[in-house]
Every structure is written in structure tokens, then in C-alpha cells.
Amino acid sequence: MEYRRIRQAGGTYFFTVNLAERSSTLLVDRVDDLRHAVRTVKQRHPFDIVAWVVLPDHLHAIWTLPDGDGDCATRWMLIKARFSRSIPKGERIRASRRRKGERGIWQRRFWERLMTDESDLRSHVDYVHINPVKHGHVVRASDWPYSSIHRYIGLGLMPLDWAAKVDQAVSGGEG
């Protein structure tokens, strides 16, 4: 079965990309390797990062592609491959992947959504930034180190306490 993706040149997309092993912490354990993979791919296949968050077992990103280019799939394939090559072998690999010479680090597919307007984009940027709070990793979004929220705060686009769980933040995280 052929998987079809929307390809809009110059489009802005929201992505969810998961590790194969959802209980893994590989993405935050090896975040520098992931950053290097992204930087390297961006040099040859440019895109603008609108928002990004890296969680232990998955990530969310929003990219805008250059005019005349709608190829997200190649960029993700290259990022995943470069990151995987930086990881020592040892993960569990299913027989179907082994036959194809694949690693067992990433889920094969990724989920994407083409942004339709500014309101859609804003809600997805918020979703990206609230994700560490949603998953219980931190009490306030700005406490998560692997997020583009720090850029937004630095530019004055979001306050430091944006999306803080007020009852927990005030009581020191108890309750």
C-alpha cells in the first residue's frame, strides 16, 4: 500500500514523530545527536522551524518549507537516519525490519498536518509548547529544556509562566 502525503510547496506543517519503543527516553538522552541530525539536514534541505519540542519518546515540530518545495518526507527520513546512525546498535528489531536492513529506533511513519490559517498555526504552536506539561514532565512549559518555548519567551511572545499549572506552581508542585 502506498502512503500518500499532502505536498504543498512552501507549506507550514505540524508533525508528530515517535520512537518505536514508546517507553524509551532516547530522544532526551541523546538530544545533542538529534540536534546535530536536524542541523545537518537543514543545511542541505532547508526549512524554518516554527516550533519544536522533544520529549523522551516522541517529538512535535512545526516547519515551514521553502517556496517551491513540499517534500517533508525526505527531510524526516534523513533526520531519522542520521540520528539512528549516531546510536550504538542494540535495540530490539522486529524480523520484518531486519529483513529490510532497518533499525528499530523510529516508528516507520510520522503524522503530519498542513496548517490552514493563522489560528490553526497558533493552536498547534501552543500544543507543541504545552506537551511537556500535558505528559507530566514539568509543572510549567518553560521548565522543559527541549522546547522552542524559550525562543518565544525570549522574543516576548509568551510569558515565562505561560501554561503553568497554577495550583501546583503555587504550592511547590504538591497536591
Rank of each mutant, 00 (worst) to 15 (best):
R5L: 09
A9N: 12
G10F: 09
G11E: 08
T12S: 14
Y13C: 06
Y13L: 04
F15Y: 13
T16V: 15
N18R: 13
L19E: 01
L26V: 07
V28E: 04
V28W: 00
V31H: 08
L34A: 03
H36W: 15
A37Y: 02
Q43F: 07
R44G: 13
P46W: 12
F47M: 12
I49A: 04
V50W: 07
V50K: 02
A51D: 06
H60V: 06
A61N: 02
R75C: 03
W76L: 13
I79P: 01
R82W: 03
F83T: 02
S84C: 11
S86I: 00
G90A: 05
G90Q: 05
R97Y: 09
K100F: 04
G101M: 03
E102G: 06
G104T: 00
I105M: 00
W106T: 01
W111G: 03
E112D: 15
L114T: 06
M115R: 03
S119L: 11
D120R: 02
D120I: 03
D120V: 06
S123T: 14
V125D: 02
H129K: 11
I130T: 12
V133C: 09
G136V: 11
G136Y: 08
H137D: 08
H137T: 10
V139A: 03
P145D: 06
Y146P: 00
Y146A: 03
Y146N: 09
S148M: 08
H150L: 13
H150Q: 14
G154K: 11
A163F: 13
A164K: 14
K165F: 04
V166F: 07
V166A: 15
D167P: 14
D167I: 12
Q168L: 12
Q168F: 10
G172R: 05
G175F: 02
